[in-house]
Design a protein around this nucleic acid. Structure first.
Lengths: 196, 196
DNA sequence: CTAACTTTTGTTAGTCAATAACACTACGGC
DNA sequence: GCCGTAGTGTTATTGACTAACAAAAGTTAG
């Protein structure tokens, strides 16, 4: 119990509450009046903090929308795929498994956030950076799985897979969320296999 | 000769000269002292104009580095590929032809600019946006070539091709330009073909 | 050649994101 | 209860970018 402060201390509770408050007010305001039309000052005021505090919790205005917590999770799923499987199929299967877990429970929230990102230039730019990072992570996972170093080939395959995923997500938003995302992702990955 | 002003008038000459001056001083300063460490005010001063004039010529600080003029050219090369050829191979061949023309004459300039973009976060973000635009253009070109509308499959293939190109360019910079770019691009595209 | 016009530029003043310095408050260990 | 410190607010600064208006130059007509 020496480290109680890090788990249940009042400070940590407050921190977590403040962080969540900022995030929720930000998303509400973004969806309400648009991303660019919403200033950090507004968000901070709505959350009852100063704009400095906002930046203490999030490094940039964009970061408040980001949510890449489960990238490492997917990387682990990739590493768990059988070594014989071809890399692209391993990525497809891992992404599928990871997304299934999220979509079943949080579909609407995922859609709202994805829509916000896809339709906001500033968030897109940021998202592309995150996608590149994810690509690197996946390439590393592929390499680990085959017990060899990352090379150009694995990097290209990982980049192609994230490109397929991004294309499917964009199509999802373009269709106003009416399509089944899983099906779109299947189609996207199928396009990478020069079929018989 | 009714439209002389649009071709050889003093105004157009001055405009072209100013634009080039801004661009050259900007690149020099960026390479010299870094992108972030260089302010628009500095660039404007070096080019002998006010910072407002800078923004009249370039919408953003990043735009001064961009150079997507030959995207439509590559799209035309894609359209010119035989309709029987598979889409990915058509893109590879078109990109190859387009790059050959540039690399032979401007290799060093292309390398310097690519390095600047790859190593500067703000320029990367912008470049990803441009890459996405290029992807759309290529997808459209592929569709035109096959005389049918753009669909998810063509978009994925175009996105995968640009991802391969980007990966090759990144590897080129990581290797300090010592590798042969053409060879890197060949390897990158080969990775997209699940080989025999 | 001159007068009226249009285009381009500079000046000024501003907004907003992001960072820094420093003092203040209150939590939590003792 | 006391004190160190984490967390916050205040204020000020930098730098990208925009708007409004005035000034200067180019262009065209008469």
């Amino acid at each position: 119990m020496t480290n109680q402060a890090e788990r249940g201390g009042l400070r940590e509770q407050r921190k977590a509450r403040t962080r969540r408050a900022i995030q929720e007010h930000a998303l509400r305001l973004f969806l309400d009046q648009g991303y660019d039309a919403t200033t950090v000052e507004e968000i901070a005021a709505a959350a009852g903090v100063s704009h400095m505090t906002f930046f203490r919790y999030f490094p940039t205005k964009e970061a408040v929308v980001e949510d890449d917590d489960y990238d490492p999770f997917i990387a682990d799923l990739v590493r768990a795929r059988p070594a014989g499987e071809n890399p692209l199929e391993a990525l497809r299967a891992a992404l599928r498994t990871g997304l299934d877990a999220v979509l079943d429970t949080d579909r609407d929230a995922v859609y709202a956030r994805t829509r916000l990102i896809v339709t906001t230039p500033a968030l897109q730019a940021r998202q592309w950076h995150n996608t590149a990072t994810t690509g690197d992570l996946l390439a590393t996972a592929l390499a680990d799985r085959e017990r060899r170093p990352v090379d150009l080939r694995l990097r290209v395959i990982a980049a192609a897979a994230t490109a397929a995923l991004t294309t499917a997500l964009t199509a999802w938003v373009e269709g106003d969320g009416a399509d089944d995302l899983r099906s779109l992702i299947d189609q996207a990955f199928a396009a990478l296999d020069p079929e018989p």
